[in-house]
Computed example of a mutant assay.
Amino acid sequence: MKILRGTIFGGIAFFFLGWVVYGMLLADFMAAHSDASLNRPDDQMVWWAMILSNLVLGLLVTLVLKWSGATSIIDGIKTGAIFGFLMGLTMDLMMYSMTTQYDLTVVFVDVIVYTILLAIIGLVIVLTWGKGK
């Protein structure tokens, strides 16, 4: 049950946090520092893929938390932040090395933002586990 709850609540939390952070708060910054010519217009978004990707990320973070033995809020935040930093740095450096979509400013900011987002997701997931086994 922990894995299912973590996957669902982690995926939902990441969807809404991503929408607020990337879709609203950082929208102008990202537009100024990246080449958005490959992005789909909002009305052509493939929603099933977006939803599935968020659930898969929720599952991935849930598994990392479970395998690390995370039980407390601090465990969730720390493990989520470390995982988020490493994953964000990997994805952003890969994108920077192979495309012209991002500049180095986006790489730096996105790694920080992704670290914070996954720390929050780690917190949400651990909170959904409750006190049971």
Results as ranks from 00 to 15, higher is better:
Lys133Met: 10
Phe14Leu: 09
Met87Val: 14
Lys78Thr: 15
Leu25Val: 07
Gly76Arg: 01
Ile120Arg: 00
Gly122Lys: 08
Ala32Asp: 12
Leu57Tyr: 06
Val46Ala: 13
Leu86Pro: 04
Ala27Cys: 03
Met1Gly: 10
Asp103Arg: 08
Ala49His: 08
Ser68Ile: 00
Thr7His: 07
Met24Ala: 15
Leu117Pro: 03
Phe14Ile: 02
Val124Gln: 07
Leu38Asp: 13
Ser68Ala: 13
Met95Pro: 01
Val111His: 06
Tyr22His: 10
Ile121Cys: 05
Met24Ser: 14
Asp43Val: 14
Leu104Val: 13
Ile12Met: 03
Met45Pro: 01
Ala70Cys: 05
Val64Trp: 02
Gly58Arg: 02
Val113Leu: 13
Val126Trp: 01
Leu38Asn: 12
Ser34Phe: 13
Ile51Leu: 12
Met95Trp: 15
Leu65Ser: 06
Ser72Arg: 01
Gly58His: 02
Tyr96His: 08
Leu127Ala: 10
Lys2Ser: 09
Ile12Ala: 02
Leu93Thr: 01
Ala119Phe: 09
Thr7Ala: 01
Gly18Tyr: 11
Arg5Phe: 13
Lys66Cys: 06
Ile12Leu: 09
Leu26His: 10
Met91Arg: 10
Met87Phe: 11
Ile112Val: 12
Val107Ser: 15
Val107Gly: 14
Leu104Pro: 15
Ala31Ser: 13
Trp129Thr: 07
Leu17Gly: 00
Leu4Asp: 02
Asp43Ile: 09
Leu17Tyr: 05
Ala70Asn: 05
Ile51Met: 07
Asp28Lys: 15
Gly76Asn: 05
Thr99Val: 06
Met30Asp: 04
Ala119Ile: 06
Leu86Ile: 06
Val20Thr: 08
Gly23Pro: 04
Val46Thr: 10
Ala36Gln: 14
Ile120Glu: 01
Asn39Asp: 14
Ala31Pro: 02
Val124Ser: 08
Gln101Ala: 15
Asn54Trp: 01
Leu26Trp: 07
Ile12Arg: 00
Ile82Gly: 10
Phe14Asn: 06
Gly80Ser: 09
Val109Leu: 15
Lys131Tyr: 06
Ser97Val: 00
